[in-house]
């Protein structure tokens, strides 16, 4: 029986890791290219989840709603960056403060529009898959599969496309990138939009597994920050690895201890990592490997 429990925790850990990876990647893009610590990311996740539930409520199919939500958040991301964050590029702390203002506005809007009650979205996959004796809900598997697909696509985008390369160059050295003819501001808009889109996708996927409630975004936001730091704060690959570590710690902690204690473990782990290796886990490993 205990091996079943273990496998269950493993699958849950992978699903959490997938969600945190989407969030941490968005935060990494925004922090890496805009120097903004985006506290509004949690509310963007929630926005994705709520809007999905509204679209599904008026009768649309989940598979139609998903791209609509993601595209909607991408557009919102561009608008927010152009209207607000672009005005305070020289003072990163002001970007953080603006994101706090957005938190207050969005939180208020959700409260007025959706109220405090739990909302549920009918799960798109109505199947339970039996793998080697453990039962995995199809929706949890969906979270993992979609995330893996997005990660592969994003990796291809960053490594192979012109815009992706320009993005990496800008993250590395924005002034030099500007001198080389890269339109740095445009790249930053794209980074924020991509981050917002990833948050929206995370929200949609969360809504297939969890009921939607006003504090749904807080957990992933914090764990996303933690993953970002574990990964060395400016490396997309590092953010994903950080997300895996945190997802696993949380899942196994919850299974074998309690959910609060699991969070305590995650925070304690984060504090120790920040103390001993502020440059993150991955950077250290790469250095020794080179």
């Amino acid at each position: 029986m205990s091996s079943e429990l273990f496998l269950q925790a493993l699958v849950n850990g992978l699903m959490l890791a997938a969600l945190y990876a989407l969030v941490a990647l968005g935060l990494t893009l925004i922090f890496g290219l805009l120097d903004v610590v985006n506290f509004a990311h949690g509310q963007l996740i929630l926005l994705g989840a709520y809007v999905l539930s509204s679209i599904v409520d008026i009768g649309a199919n989940f598979w139609v709603a998903l791209p609509l939500v993601v595209v909607g958040l991408v557009v919102l991301g561009v608008v927010l960056d152009m209207a607000l964050f672009a005005r305070v590029r020289d003072e990163p702390i002001n970007g953080l403060l603006i994101s706090l203002g957005l938190v207050a506005i969005l939180e208020n809007a959700f409260h007025v529009i959706y109220g405090p009650d739990l909302r549920r979205v009918a799960p798109p996959i109505d199947a339970v898959i039996d793998v080697a004796g453990i039962r995995i809900s199809g929706n949890r598997l969906l979270v993992i599969v979609v995330t893996v697909f997005v990660l592969v696509a994003l990796s291809y985008f960053l490594r192979r496309t012109r815009t992706g390369k320009a993005m990496r160059a800008t993250a590395e050295a924005d002034e030099a990138a500007g001198l080389m003819g890269i339109r740095v501001e445009r790249i930053r808009h794209i980074a924020f939009a991509a981050g917002a889109g990833l948050a929206g996708l995370a929200g949609v996927l969360m809504a297939t597994v969890y009921p939607i409630e006003p504090s749904l975004g807080e957990g992933p936001l914090i764990m996303g920050f933690a993953a970002l730091i574990l990964g060395g704060s400016r490396s997309p690959l590092g953010a994903v690895l950080g997300a895996v570590v945190i997802g696993m710690v949380q899942s196994f902690g919850t299974t074998y201890l309690s959910s609060s204690l699991a969070d305590v473990l995650v925070f304690a782990f984060l504090i120790l990592i920040l103390f001993w290796r502020p440059q993150g886990l991955l950077r250290a490993r790469l250095e020794t490997a080179l």
Binding site: L84, R87, V88, L97, A104, I105, N108, V112
Partner: peptide, 17 residues
Amino acid sequence: GEWGDGVFGALLILLVL
């Protein structure tokens, strides 16, 4: 009215800008 927190958030953004 019920948009008090939102107004406060908007005020914060306006001040920062």
